[in-house]
Design a protein around this nucleic acid. Structure first.
Lengths: 133, 133
DNA sequence: TGCTAAATTGTAATCGTTACAAACAACAAC
DNA sequence: GTTGTTGTTTGTAACGATTACAATTTAGCA
């Protein structure tokens, strides 16, 4: 938790209970949640927490690279506490999101000359191992 | 244009002026447009064209694999007449989207055992060659 | 030519997200 | 500690891309 506080401070963000709660929850729950899911999960412990604050917080964290945004369904934004490069697999049957390791160098090798990549997203749709059996 | 008609018919979709116009425009304008952009572009020639019809059409075309959807900015859906596998590069300075070739086999090789991919999306953010100079 | 199911149209609704202004709290200086 | 400044939180209202809906029109076929 001290680490999280330092992360916030190093980004020039003030340390607040709400931010710590959101950040900490994302670290411990790698489920690619929407803002609403985070809000629902924290409400019991923070009854005054506003959904707006959750949005403000995840936007601030994402802007400073402390978390990443994931677009699985265009209709809603999801967030990911894991900022290391990795791919996302979306099973069209069970709907589950599975992370898988990628080598960003492989992806960067696909780019035309002169292009400078800063963030790679690899997103695959299909059938997961369980649903394909 | 005959080809486009056949594409529609083979998907069990009726051939209408509106669908042909949208489909044809997407083929000839590889600019990853939003529904609104398509609508604005076609309005001069089809003054009665409804934005709803553009949405209906791109959704129908995408559902049958005749076009693909691209999510560059989560806030709005874009469409791509090129259904072959390729990556999208989004320059954070000029905002331009550049297509680049990918080898889907490379991407599939990153997946865990047993996972069956059906569609791959590779999306890279950074600086394009022109902006990086 | 007429029938029927599908497509188009315009309007109204939906819903995730953001704008805004007032109340509050972090944190640095004293 | 106390204070002051500035950033943050909160609730509500607005926003905007997309979709639902019902009435009208049209494609495709007998």
């Amino acid at each position: 938790m001290e680490q999280l506080k330092n992360d916030l401070r190093q980004c020039g963000l003030r340390v607040t209970d709400q931010r710590l709660a959101v950040y900490d929850w994302l670290q411990k729950n790698p489920v690619h949640p929407t803002a609403d899911v985070i809000w629902q999960a924290l409400l019991p412990r923070y009854p005054n927490l506003s959904l707006t604050t959750v949005y403000n917080t995840v936007n601030a964290l994402a802007e400073h690279g402390l978390i990443r945004t994931v677009t699985i369904d265009r209709a809603e934004q999801r967030f990911d506490g894991d900022v290391d490069d990795h791919g996302h697999f979306h099973c069209r049957l069970c709907g589950r999101i599975t992370d898988f390791p990628i080598d960003p160098e492989d992806v960067k090798g696909m780019l035309p000359k002169g292009f400078i990549p800063e963030q790679c997203d690899v997103f695959v749709k299909g059938l997961c191992a369980a649903c394909a059996h």
